[in-house]
Design a protein around this nucleic acid. Structure first.
Length: 888
RNA sequence: GCACGCCUAGCUCAGUUGGUUAGAGCAUCUCCUUUACACGGAGAGGGUCGAGGGUUCGAAUCCCCCGGCGUGUACCA
């Protein structure tokens, strides 16, 4: 007879199991196909959101891996041709910033200047490589069944080719252009940022009311006065009506300067004095006002965030230093009217937190509004050759439901974002990334995949926004621009599973890039998960010291426990809270499953350790457990398909622990002869649990059935809903029959506990069973053993023996002989209380059924059900009354 | 400002087309070393589903309004 160790010790098995999976080759759909495992003819593919090579994986990554691996393993077992593509993201600015910091810690004060482009990039690549290796190992630790043979990196050669190809195509279509305009500039990173790479933080500042020629106006940035060229007022503002169009000389700290007054709707009459100073080159709003009125700007802040040479004595100061100095000088000149405290939104860099400076700059942009001809379209509502803009493409695929976002409420957020979308600035002044495939020679420009042949051409030194390359991810990983088999088989991918926090950064960009490049969607469904927070709902961060390291907890509680704690109690689009107690709870469950298996092993007849088909049930308990197992198969599959992973897991846990372990296994000890049925049930629940907790299930599977067959590619159990109902009928029982047995046992146990009867004392019970006599007799051994009875007397009709107390379940009366050890008063109170509750219940039901409107309007089935409940309750009341009388 | 989400047992949350006396896990209390498991078993207590209106025969569920918390977003100088 086979035997298992008493407790499941994860660290003993996990690495070995992962190695076996890897060596089996089953992570690769080609291998599964070759072995005849792909039986549905369908493909299922997910491309892993590539973790940034900026460090290590955190618990949020672990959650993402658990969710995706669950889907992947489920579909693989179902027989779909299933592919999960791994990869990492070079994360341009983030990685470069991180390495700069590390180099500075190593004593290199200005890494870029001291090392130069080539040496510096060497350092970044070295760091990225190490980070990549860590990430791969961590992913494996989590049990992720990724096809490592297809691993990709956003900055490797094949992806570089894809990037250059798309860039050139967009340039040729006139969608990519070079323009001089105001951009978000991070003086720390020394680079532009896209609009959504800018974060807003409320901060305490000052509002300066300044005397400005004929105006008094309010500003938070007096230092930008040096770059003012206009004053704007609302066209409907009578106060300034006569001034519009006129020019004024304004006294300033560097002497007088001229401004023109313009009328513009962007100005709020109510705010401040209703007059706005316009600094076209250092404010987005002002730039737009200036454009509308043909006003020229003046740049006064440079790329270091410092005042430029044209700022006289303020030149070289940072903007903050200049602000202090200028305010001081203005005060001396009597130009400050008054100063107020003011709370405003500070724009900061999402990578380094430094304040963003709007400055004018010559950059590359993607035009999101320009229409172009989409040659080939696989999109709903868009024909081949139709003229569309990128914005329209992004809108139409979600509106037409060709792409479905789960949960649905993110649709609105997505559309709102597109509505406010401006041209995308894609050039970055950093070194780590895809260098822009543009070459210059004097005024000539060349855009191409390779550098021009002749000498004298210089490549643009800038690199592309990291999201440009990750936007191509679903198809660049599958081999595009080559026409590969993978592209044919796996694109569009089935599901994109990622965090809602990168809906705009990434998901929207993939939709943009893919619809444009392929005329197709990148994925059919977007499943958005939330953040993993600590038990108090705070973000996990190093400074708070509340970080749960996935590897630490995997080691302590087992990877399966960690995965379960991230899957159960975690619903789409919502943040979830995680604590070690929660993980420990699921560690207990993995051990429970292990011990269930351990027990079942003892029940399997020798030499019959093989997977078998569904056996014929012999007893009521057999029928009950098989019908319920069928329900679980059906419900778990359905919930996984609907992305309700938590629900699926809970159902499975309830079945495994409450029905199988707590009831059926105890009955198996009594009835015996369960070799086949237990063997079958175990094999089914191991399959059902496998996508949730791959390690412990695979290990048990191996212990029982040997190493030849691996659980990872076993066939997922299936059941038709109709056959479920038929099955219960075929078995000649209803779930209510077994429920009665459970209720009788639970009722006796409850009376025993309430009356403080010692557990060892065996009781005598008489049951007045009516039509249920045969049923109860068949199962009398179960009742006797589980309720610890000495004698069990089952009659069609019995009267209450003296010295006993009773209860009623489904029309059956159970009398428990307590041999006079009854506390009569206590028992009276119990029965009275029950009677009272029942009375309220009956009154409610009666009222409902007397209500003609209810009877007429509610569906007949509902009415009938209520009537039945009423009848049963009335019957129970009669029996309770007679029991109460018996006590007097 | 606008939009979205959340408020259900002490805690974390389910509750998907409105229909059992509202559920689970953890925690709490009582009892039990019954040979699969004390990372266990049996039993128990605990909620007027944030407040108030409305629709309906019937509302935790749909509508309105209010309050608290959170998130996203906007051109507030």
């Amino acid at each position: 007879m086979k035997e298992l160790p008493k407790a499941y010790e994860p660290e003993q098995y996990e690495d070995k199991i992962y190695t076996r999976w890897e060596e089996s080759g089953f992570f690769n759909p080609d291998k599964c196909d070759k072995e005849g495992k792909c039986t549905t003819g369908k493909s299922f593919s997910i491309v892993l959101p590539p973790p940034n090579v900026t460090g290590t994986l955190h618990i949020g990554h672990a959650s993402m891996l658990a969710i995706q691996d669950l889907m992947i393993r489920y579909h693989r077992m179902k027989g779909d041709r299933t592919l999960w593509v791994p990869g990492t993201d070079h994360a341009a600015i983030a990685t470069q910033t991180k390495v700069e910091k590390l180099l500075m810690e190593r004593g290199i004060k200005e890494p870029k200047k001291e090392l130069g482009r080539e040496k510096f990039l060497e350092e970044v690549n070295k760091f990225a490589k190490e980070s990549h290796d860590t990430i791969v190992n961590q992913s494996k630790k989590m049990g992720s069944s990724l096809d490592w043979s297809r691993e990709a990196f956003t900055l490797d050669e094949p992806r570089n080719l894809a990037v250059k190809t798309v860039f050139k195509k967009m340039y040729d279509d006139g969608l990519i252009y070079r323009g001089y305009r105001i951009v978000n500039w991070c003086p720390r990173c020394h680079s532009t940022l896209a609009d959504d790479e800018v974060e807003h933080k409320t901060s305490q500042g000052k509002m300066y009311w300044i005397k400005y020629g004929p105006f008094i106006l309010a500003t938070t940035r007096p230092e930008t006065k040096l770059g003012d060229t206009a004053v704007a007022v609302n066209p409907n503002d009578n106060r300034y009506k006569d001034m519009v169009g006129k020019k004024y000389m304004i006294p300033g700290v560097l002497g007088e300067f001229e401004i023109i007054v313009v009328a513009d709707d962007a100005v709020d009459i109510e705010f401040g004095s209703g007059a706005v100073k316009v600094t076209p080159y250092h404010s987005f709003t002002d730039y737009e006002i200036a454009q509308r009125h043909g006003i020229v700007g003046k740049q006064i802040i440079d790329e270091d965030g410092k005042m430029m040479a044209n700022c006289g004595k303020y030149a070289g100061m940072t903007t903050l230093e200049a602000r202090t100095a200028i305010v001081k000088d203005m005060e001396k000149m009597g130009l400050i009217d008054h100063v107020e405290d003011y709370e405003n939104n500070l724009s900061i860099c999402y990578r380094c937190g430094h304040a963003i400076e709007p400055i004018p700059s010559k950059q590359w942009f993607i035009d999101v509004n320009k229409r172009f001809k989409l040659e080939k379209s696989k999109l709903k509502n868009i024909k081949d050759g139709q003229e569309v803009s990128l914005k329209e493409l992004m809108q139409t695929v979600v509106k037409s439901e060709q792409i479905e976002i789960v949960p649905e409420r993110f649709d609105k957020i997505y559309f709102h974002w597109i509505d406010n979308l401006r041209d995308w600035c894609i050039s970055r002044q950093i070194w780590y990334g895809h260098q822009i495939p543009v070459w210059y020679k004097g005024d000539e420009i060349f855009v191409g995949i390779e550098a021009p042949d002749e000498d004298g051409w210089l490549q643009d030194p800038d690199t592309l926004d990291t999201w440009f390359s990750s936007g191509l991810w679903t198809f660049s990983t599958l081999g595009w621009p080559n026409e590969t088999e993978d592209l044919k088989n796996f694109h569009p991918t089935t599901v994109m599973e990622t965090g809602y926090d990168i809906l705009f950064f990434w998901v929207a960009r993939m939709i943009l890039m893919t619809t444009y490049t392929l005329g197709d969607i990148p994925f059919e469904k977007v499943y958005l998960h939330g953040l993993v927070r600590d038990e108090q709902g705070r973000k996990m961060s190093k400074s708070l010291g509340n970080v749960i390291d996935p590897l630490d907890v995997c080691k302590e509680y087992g990877t399966d426990a960690v995965r379960l704690s991230l899957l159960i109690g975690n619903t789409p689009g919502n943040d979830c809270k995680l604590s070690e107690e929660k993980i420990a709870g699921f560690r207990n469950f993995s051990n429970k499953l292990w011990n269930i298996s351990r027990f079942i092993l003892t029940q399997i007849e020798d030499n019959k350790y093989q997977i078998i088909d569904k056996p014929t049930p012999k007893t009521l308990a057999d029928k009950w457990i098989l019908v319920n197992l069928g329900i679980v198969i059906y419900e778990v599959s359905k919930n996984i398909e609907k992305f309700q992973f938590s629900q699926a897991g809970e159902l499975l846990r309830d079945f495994t622990w409450n029905e199988l372990a707590d009831w059926y296994l105890e009955i198996a000890k009594i009835e015996g002869d369960k070799s086949e049925i237990l063997n079958y049930i175990l094999s089914v629940i191991l399959k059902l649990w496998h996508p949730f907790m791959p390690f412990v299930t695979e290990q048990i599977w191996t212990e029982i059935y040997g190493e030849e067959r691996m659980l990872i590619v076993e066939k997922w159990p299936t059941i038709q809903k109709t056959s479920l109902q038929e099955e219960a009928v075929d078995f000649g029982c209803t779930s209510i029959d077994f429920q009665l047995i459970q209720d009788i046992i639970a009722g006796i146990r409850s009376l025993r506990a309430e009356n403080k009867i010692e557990p060892v004392k065996k009781l005598n019970v008489v049951i007045s069973a009516g039509g249920k006599k045969d049923l109860l007799e068949e199962n009398s051994e179960i009742i006797k053993t589980l309720a610890r009875l000495e004698n069990l007397q089952i009659e069609e009709s019995a009267t209450k023996p003296a010295g006993s107390i009773g209860f009623v379940k489904s029309g059956v009366e159970i009398f428990v002989d307590l041999s006079g050890a009854i506390d009569v008063e206590k028992e009276k109170i119990r029965l009275e209380k029950e009677k009272q509750e029942l009375g309220i219940y009956i009154k409610g039901l009666g009222g409902k059924l007397d209500n003609k409107e209810f009877v007429n309007n509610a569906p007949p089935a509902v009415v009938e059900k209520e009537q039945q409940k009423l009848n049963e309750a009335k019957d129970k009341l009669i029996k309770l009354n007679s029991q109460l009388e018996g006590l007097n």
